[in-house]
């Protein structure tokens, strides 16, 4: 499973990539693989405030639904509206064009609760891929 360096991860299989005080959020390669063909992504509106690990939407395949959790607390400053038309981007490019949100982080210390790439890889291994 592809787990890029430099990103932070949640145990619910979201990633966040920080640039300054803004982070871009999506789901991991492992998560999209577990779901199968993504058919629908429900995202919130810009401007909404989220707490750390608050559910902000859902991602759906034909026969499964997964809640999405925001890795950090903050304000949603951008939403990937492309996913409305092209949910398959989540499968094709989960760390790139399949991103979901950009969040302006409120407290930098939220990042301390997240996993590094190596920690997340180990977590996946431990879970036996059978999440």
């Amino acid at each position: 499973m592809d787990v890029p360096e430099g990103l932070k991860y949640t145990r619910e299989h979201e990633w966040i990539k920080m640039e300054g005080n803004t982070g871009r959020v999506g789901i991991t390669h492992y998560a999209q693989d577990q779901l199968g063909d993504v058919v629908f992504v429900e995202l919130p509106k810009k401007g909404r405030q989220l707490r750390q690990m608050e559910s902000f939407g859902v991602v759906e395949s034909v026969k499964a639904v997964s809640d999405l959790y925001c890795p950090v607390g903050g304000e949603i400053v951008e939403v990937n509206s492309e996913l409305e038309r092209k949910p398959e981007m989540v499968n094709a490019d989960p760390y790139g064009a399949g991103w979901m949100l950009e969040v302006k982080i409120t407290q930098a210390k939220d990042l301390d609760n997240l996993l590094s790439a190596s920690e997340y890889s180990a977590y996946l291994k431990q879970a036996g891929g059978g999440h």
């Binding site: 629908f40 759906e60 395949s61 034909v62 026969k63 499964a64 639904v65």
Partner: peptide, 12 residues
């Protein structure tokens, strides 16, 4: 669109 339904989304 069965993800709306009880057999997948259960209590939601």
């Amino acid at each position: 669109l069965a993800t709306r339904e009880q057999h997948i989304r259960r209590e939601k």
